Amino acid sequence: MTKEAALREELKKIDVNEKLSACPIDFSRSKVANPRAGQQSKTYVSGTAKSNFNDRKKFQPYQEPQFNNLFTDGTLPVEANRYRLIWSRHCPWANRLAIAIDLLGLDNVISKGVVDPLRPAGVVGDWFFTLDDNDEDPVLHTHSLSESYLKADPNYDLRTTVPALVDIKTGKVVNNNYNTLIDEFSIAWKKYQNENAPDLYPEALREDIDALNKIIYTDVNTAVNEAGLARSQADYEKYYNRVFNRLDWLEDRLSKQRYLFGSIITDTDIRLYVTLARFDVVFYQKYYVNKKRLVDYPNLWNYTKDLYSLPAFKNNTDFDAIKKRFYQVDHTPQSDLPRIIPNGPDLSNWTAPNDRDRFEK
């Protein structure tokens, strides 16, 4: 059986839902994932932001990307310094794009703005530029991401999500599709990429990349969240088993080659990395996905350290922001929402040597 056929066979075993799986700490009814679950709604004074963390009807846990304008079909002009990626350093979906932009060398022509991983007390559906001077994005001159969503659609009433690509000229969100933007940058922005930039979406591998992306999305990227969202033992065990069956499968795959498709880094490696980078820090502890840690998988762990050794990965991996978002949750006072932020795990081993160059030899 060829590799391509093997991937198709694996794909037949799973049900792929490409709607965004929201962060369980906002939408889970389980106290395990969401420390606010079951709390009485309370109004906080936070500028114009409204306290709404018990408003689950409006902000459903699944949501498709609402803005899908493309470069590859000519809808969006490929123009240097016209677009700004808005992301949060805690978010794996957004983290993908930040890594890809730097890895391709597009950081000189596509700027990046960062929202605070901690929202105002009680707020679920928006992100804010409270890390910047005057609480304002220095390029877009907006205070919240929803402002760019509303410029694109004045009737927009869903939650605002990261990543979001904003047209600086108009201030409008033009694409928030976390599943397609890497490939858009890979294909349509080649004239601006570094000379030595990897081809993240090589034409000869696209069918295989698409298949493995769906497998990883379903059994790793979203399955860890689904374990956190679970409201029954049966649902929890379903996703728990999905995660570790797939990690075992990936461990075997990476025992034979440096990256997921041999000796080259592709889109798929970025998609897997962002979940692995958060595994021991968050998912193993907080969502009870705790059969094994990442460091217990020799190939997966060394593969992740290998990617982390590259500046595009390391500089866009912020463990402090990850821990803040998943454990501190938001700016709710400790007296209203008691929570503890764990000191561990020890992160010094991320810069330890890895063994992946054995495949190049």
Rank of each mutant, 00 (worst) to 15 (best):
D73T: 15
P61K: 08
Y44C: 00
V329K: 11
G38Q: 03
D199Q: 10
K238W: 09
V224Q: 08
K172H: 07
K190P: 01
Y83N: 01
S46W: 07
I270P: 01
N343G: 10
I270Q: 01
I341F: 00
G344K: 06
S28Q: 10
R82A: 01
L337C: 00
K151W: 12
E203I: 11
Y308S: 06
G113A: 03
R271S: 06
D183Y: 08
D116E: 01
T268L: 08
S88D: 11
K361I: 13
D132M: 11
G262H: 12
I99D: 11
D306P: 03
N221K: 05
Y192Q: 02
P61W: 11
A321G: 02
G122K: 04
A100S: 03
I182V: 10
K57C: 03
S232H: 09
W249Y: 14
A321M: 07
N34Y: 06
P35V: 14
L97R: 06
L205P: 05
S255D: 15
I216P: 03
T43G: 00
E203D: 12
W249A: 15
G228I: 04
E79F: 07
R8D: 07
K190F: 00
A33Y: 10
A49Y: 04
N95Q: 15
F185C: 10
F59H: 15
D135Y: 14
L103T: 00
L337P: 00
Y288W: 09
W87Q: 13
D132T: 08
Y192M: 03
D126S: 08
D252C: 11
R84Y: 03
H90Q: 12
D183M: 11
K12Q: 14
A352E: 15
D133V: 11
F128R: 10
Y149S: 09
T351R: 10
A277T: 12
S146M: 14
E10F: 08
A188G: 03
A152L: 12
A152F: 09
P138L: 03
N225M: 14
E79D: 02
K191G: 02
S51Y: 02
P35I: 13
D320I: 08
S144E: 13
I209K: 06
S111I: 02
S146I: 13
I216D: 09
R206W: 05
S30W: 10
V174T: 03
K57A: 12
Y83F: 04
D219N: 15
Y259A: 06
I264P: 01
H141E: 09
R29F: 11
S28A: 15
Y236I: 00
T2W: 06
Y178V: 06
Y259H: 13
E136Q: 15
N290R: 03
G171P: 04
V124T: 12
A33S: 15
P345Y: 10
R325F: 14
R84S: 11
N54Y: 05
L20Y: 11
I101C: 07
K238F: 12
I182M: 07
P311W: 00
N175K: 05
I14C: 09
D318R: 05
Q334H: 01
L165R: 02
L165Q: 04
A312N: 01
L165Y: 09
E360Y: 13
F319R: 03
F313K: 02
D73M: 04
K169M: 06
T304C: 11
